[in-house]
Structure formats: C-alpha cells, structure tokens
Design a protein around this nucleic acid. Structure first.
Lengths: 187, 187
DNA sequence: ACAATATGACTGACCAGTCAGTATAATTAA
DNA sequence: TTAATTATACTGACTGGTCAGTCATATTGT
C-alpha cells in the first residue's frame, strides 16, 4: 500500500550510472545527476543518503547481477568447457554493460580511505570463479601448470576487457581459441 | 647552492607522481603535493602553471621515456623475435614504472573536455608499435590472421598489464610462450 | 488528515589559483 | 672591495568559485 512506482529512483540510478561512466567520481556533481534524472537535488538525497552511498549502490547492485550471470552455466566437471562458457558469459556482460564496467574501472583504481577498499574483494569475485576453473584444469592436466591460476585468471580478464569495437562474428570463440592455442595456429 | 639546481622541482614531480598514482586527480590537492615535496604551495605554482599542466608534464615525460625504451631492440625483419623483444621491454617498463602506469590508467579513462583527450593518441603509441609487429607477422604467415592486428595488440597489452606480483623467474618468456602457444601446451 | 514524496535556496568546507612580499644569488657600479 | 641593482627562487595568507549535504516548505497519494 505504501509507495511506489520508484520511477524517479530508477531515473536517478540510470542517470548516475551514465554520468559516472563518462567522468570520474569527483567530476560528477549531485546536481548533474539530479538534472539528468529530471528531479530536484533534494530528491536524490531523499532516495540516497550520500553521493558515496549512491555510488556504492550502483557498484554492489551491478556486481551482484553480473556475478549471477557469470555463474550460470558452469558445470564444474569440465574445465575446458567451463572456461569456454565463462569467457562467453563474461564477454556478453562486458559488452552489454559497458557503462557499468567503465564505472567499475574507476572503482578498481587504488583509493584507500574511502568506500572503494571495501569492494575490492567482491570486485575480484569473478576472478576467483575463473581461478577455480583454471586450477581444476591444471590439476586435471588440461592446462599448463607453469603459472599461478589466479595470475592467469587476471590476465585472461585483462585480455577480454581490452577488446573493443571488433565486428568479428563470434569474438567469444575466437578469444577462447586464442587462449587455448595461442596466436601461431588457427585462423 | 640554491640557484639552478632543480632539487625542488624534482621533488615536486616525484611527490606528484606518487600521489597521483595512489589517488585520482581530483583527490590530490596542490597542497598535498607541496607538503610531500616539503615546499610551499606557491613553489609548485612557480614551477608549473597549473595542476593540469603539472599532470600533463608527468604524462608526456613518462610516455616519451617509455616509448624510447620500447623501440630499442626491434629489428623489423623477424616478427616472432620482435614480439618477444617487445613483450620483454614492455614488462620491464610496466614493472619498473608502476606509479607511472597507475597514473596512466587514470589518464586512459574517459574524461572528455580536458587535457586527457589530447593524450589518447600518444597514449596508444606503444599499441601501434605492437600492431605493426603483429601485422607483419600475419602477412608473413607467422601469426593467425583471423583477428585485427590492432585488436590483438590491445589484448596483449591488456594481458600484460594485468600481471601482478608474480615471482616466476622469467615472466616475460612465460607470457611470450602463452601468447604464441596458448595455455593447453607448455609448462 | 496524514504520511510519503519532492523541492531548491542555503550553508560551510574545501581547494585551485593569486599575489604581495622575502630571501638568496648573480651582475654591475663605485 | 663593497655597495647597489637586478634576476631568480620561494613563501603562505588570501580570494573566488564549487559542491556535498541540509532544511523549511510544498505537493501528492490514500
């Protein structure tokens, strides 16, 4: 019976995400957000305690949705297949949620002494999921063992995140093949 | 002893680099920099016109030194060997100049409407150098052809940049081998 | 009526950049 | 040699603008 169609709250979140993805935290003002959401500044403060809290919400909310998307489809018994699946999901997330990943990129930068630190761990969650896949694969003799799984995981994520505007019909399987077989064969 | 030794200027640059590598641009104040350099705020402004100009100097100066380090050693006639050489140089730069690369990472983020845009291009220079190596290699049949050389270049850079605190004795050749042969063989 | 929601003028902290002045070294004048 | 002049390096109190957050008031919904 109480409230809400939450229309304005949604507008605020959308506007904030878009602005934070285009400029760093301190170059986005609460008034920018309010204006873009077509709402008064006070309204933003009605829905969110502070600029930090608003930012915090965007990050945790986004991470949660991405995590659940990344976890679906993993079987746990076939590392090669799980790797393929993970890469595909991650690439879909990455391309589908570009604004969010831009915000996350700011978030990932060092800035001890405020909210950020607190998310570092959660932030790495998808790395841990991938780390596990790689670790399993190494123990089963499917992947090379001369590198730490978590280092390799981060490298793979870093690699995927660097992909921009390619029109290859299936980037996902291309990347998968490159990771598995390198650049000297295939093509 | 005071005139024309650039001691303070150096101190300012060092302090600024360190601070900018730890916090985003707008969370570093000119007074922070002055304090760290053990100098008055006015002194910073004596040596640099503005905060932007100081930042600008750090970036261009760092990029110039890195570029020249990356170009030495390339032969131009053997893509496989040039790739190996590039990876080694880049990794050395990346590990040796971590503060600078952190600053650069901020720099690489979108923030249209100030200095940043202007450096985008220069910023990518080392990518172009790598792109050329890959392009040559593809034309010579050494590397797979089913991916744009510039996309691949960015992926490789992204991969290397994701390497953190690994104590493998020769990370450089490990990475080189993984890029060439993938993760299913080797180790 | 009453609570929930929304408003925007206002406040106070913070910070980039200024400026009037000091100090020290280099140059010239006596 | 030393006094006077100028150039260079440095200082920190101050200013003007910006922006997160507040609050008294208005509007809407039930």
């Amino acid at each position: 019976m109480e409230l809400h169609d939450n229309k304005k709250r949604e507008m605020i979140l959308n506007s904030a995400l878009e602005l934070f993805s285009k400029r760093p935290f301190h170059r986005v003002t609460m008034e920018d957000i309010a204006n873009k959401a077509d709402v008064a500044k006070g309204t933003v403060y009605y829905h969110f305690d502070s600029k930090n809290k608003l930012f915090e919400y965007l990050i945790t909310d986004g991470l949660n949705s991405i995590r659940s998307r990344l976890d679906t489809g993993l079987k746990g018994d076939d590392p090669v297949e799980d790797l393929r699946c993970f890469i595909e999901s991650f690439l879909n997330c990455f391309i589908g949620e570009q604004d969010f990943f831009s915000v996350l990129q700011y978030e990932e930068l060092k800035d001890p002494g405020d909210i950020r630190t607190k998310y570092r761990k959660k932030n790495r969650d998808y790395c841990e999921s991938l780390t596990k896949i790689l670790d399993d694969g190494m123990r089963m003799g499917k992947f090379r063992k001369d590198i730490e799984p978590n280092v390799l995981a981060r490298m793979i994520i870093g690699m995927i995140k660097s992909v921009k505007n390619t029109d290859h019909k299936d980037v996902s399987s291309l990347i998968n093949d490159m990771i598995l077989n390198g650049i000297t064969k295939g093509g």
